[in-house]
């Protein structure tokens, strides 16, 4: 139980500045990426009009997520942001499921991963907003309803990044802590598999979906 909040770190001093790498997270992220690349390769290999099993799975994923993007944005923008939606969802779902395998850790359990993805969504949404509305109209929105509300509007936008990344992080890490404490208290008898199924599969899927949808919806709020 002593490893509640313990992190393996590699610290490289660089002059006065220290660069910190969370080794576990990096390795786990690479594993997720490798799984996704393998999946992608198996999906597009030997494409045919009578799809093989991997092709069916890939088409299901892509067309379903594409449809969701289309619901939130319009058709033209969905062509542009569809790949982002698919990539984000697949990365997150594999990340959240990874903890089910013993000795593996979810990359999303570390705040850096969700925060990085949240910042990415934030930058994409706002650059899309500037592109579609023009810089002047974009800036004007911050001064609504009155100009002195601007600081609070800016904090409100930043709070979206905080909420989207802490939602994922809190759910995954909370599940991991509850599993750790309960397994310790019950000497790993009976309960842990059910908790793993609930927090890993169910909550992991829901949170991956919510994160993806919120990223798309933030883009749609900025664009329109």
């Amino acid at each position: 139980m002593g490893d509640l909040g313990r992190i393996h770190q590699l610290i490289i001093p660089l002059g006065n500045y220290k660069m910190t790498f969370n080794l576990e997270v990096i390795v786990m992220t690479w594993i997720v990426i490798a799984v996704l690349i393998t999946f992608g390769y198996l999906t597009v290999r030997k494409k045919s009009i009578f799809p093989h099993s991997f092709q069916v799975l890939g088409e299901l994923f892509v067309s379903g997520l594409y449809k969701l993007t289309e619901d939130a944005l319009d058709e033209k923008l969905a062509r542009k942001y569809g790949p982002l939606t698919c990539a984000l969802f697949m990365f997150l779902i594999i990340s959240n499921w990874l903890g089910l395998i013993p000795h593996m850790e979810e990359p999303t359990k570390d705040l850096n991963t969700p925060l990085g993805l949240g910042l990415m969504g934030f930058i994409i949404a706002h650059s899309a907003g500037i592109k579609s509305k023009g810089l002047k109209d974009y800036l004007k929105e911050y001064c609504a309803p009155i100009f002195f509300m601007a600081p609070l509007n800016i904090i409100g936008e930043l709070a979206k990044v905080v909420s989207i990344s802490f939602r994922l992080f809190g759910n995954i890490m909370g599940g991991a802590i509850i599993i750790l404490v309960v397994s310790h208290l019950t000497y790993s008898i009976l309960l842990p598999p059910f908790l793993n199924a609930f927090f890993g599969i169910f909550v992991g899927t829901i949170q991956a979906f919510v994160f993806t949808m919120l990223t798309v919806v933030y883009i749609s709020v900025q664009v329109k």
Binding site: D71, S163, F166, R167, G170, M213
Partner: peptide, 23 residues
């Protein structure tokens, strides 16, 4: 499909205050 999606997004946003509390 659509109602479940909007429910999940709505619940996620409704949870934001508790996420701020957690922060």
């Amino acid at each position: 499909g659509q109602v479940t999606t909007i429910m999940l997004v709505g619940q996620a946003v409704a949870q934001t205050p508790s996420i701020f509390g957690l922060l």
